[in-house]
Design a protein around this nucleic acid. Sequence first.
DNA 1: GTCTATAACGGGATAGAC
DNA 2: GTCTATCCCGTTATAGAC
Lengths: 190, 190
Amino acid sequence: MATTPERLIESMRSLLWERGYVGTSPKAVLRRADVGQGSMYHHFSGKRDLGVAAIRRTADEMRVGTEELFATHGGALERVRAYLLRERDVLRGCPVGRLTQDPEVMADDALRAPVDETFAWLRARIAEVLAEGREGGELRAAMDPEETAAAVVATLQGGYVLARAARSRAPFDQAVAGILGLLKAHGAQD
Amino acid sequence: MATTPERLIESMRSLLWERGYVGTSPKAVLRRADVGQGSMYHHFSGKRDLGVAAIRRTADEMRVGTEELFATHGGALERVRAYLLRERDVLRGCPVGRLTQDPEVMADDALRAPVDETFAWLRARIAEVLAEGREGGELRAAMDPEETAAAVVATLQGGYVLARAARSRAPFDQAVAGILGLLKAHGAQD
DNA sequence: GTCTATAACGGGATAGAC
DNA sequence: GTCTATCCCGTTATAGAC
């Protein structure tokens, strides 16, 4: 059995993913963690403090998992493709991206910072991969790595939005296929 | 001065945009509309009812405004470009897209339906434009209109996410520039 | 149609016993 | 470290006077 703070953080993480920060009450966290009121206020100063710990961990996990993915593959297009086609629980949405729609997360720098850093890192990392592909002649010289990286990340985040609206992962898969089609045609000599 | 139901709907709309459905209380709506408790429960059966009216209107407005935009321009790429570059209050996010992150909107078909319909229509409309461009030889035969349309809409929705995370519209503009660059290179004979 | 009063419940936190 | 009790306030209504 995990420690009490551990259970609290994990419960908060899952609730943040499902309901966001404004939509999650301390009571709900306690119920899910099967922990008493007192324990929570012993280990954390309150909802915000626990929220910061939970968001930090979610952001860290995403970064580590994604870095692994970029480290293992070969060509630039192949690595971006692997990133886009990575298995995802599409209808649940992105646990980091969904926080950008939460008014209290956005209003509080301690809560927002991990979200900001995650996307900044992600865009930079993908831009790096794309730049390598351009230097290596795999992609056209006209391709702007930063802009293309932003488009790739945005397609994923927007794909989640479309899938949730439709209650179907189809639009997500279409969007990914769409950007991959455009990227492929952008190969140096096609 | 607008009628009381009108003021209530408009207040609800702005609060849904800023704080989402779970984050918005009837009391907050009343304060913003400068309307009494009794009036609201006279004109609407409750929060949900008012929410449905507000979401419907926001969805309708978006559809009408976007249709105008597609009707006025010329070539397929030009029209998609105009759509992507349309003036937007980026940091506020998309008033329709943000609702996909609200657990109570997603759990209630009456609240979710307008959101679903808006994106379904939007994707279909853009796919139509792209298909015209393909028939007319403006775009490659290999381009899939539905997939590309999904990618275009997703880029915008994801662009909002990135911009909000960064508290800067820069990533949004980059993502739009990125997808436009890819689309341009996808012209039939470039 | 609009007002105030009231209610039942939950949110978010503190207090102090154990 | 964890528990229960308590507090104050906000949420989402309903009731009935005006």
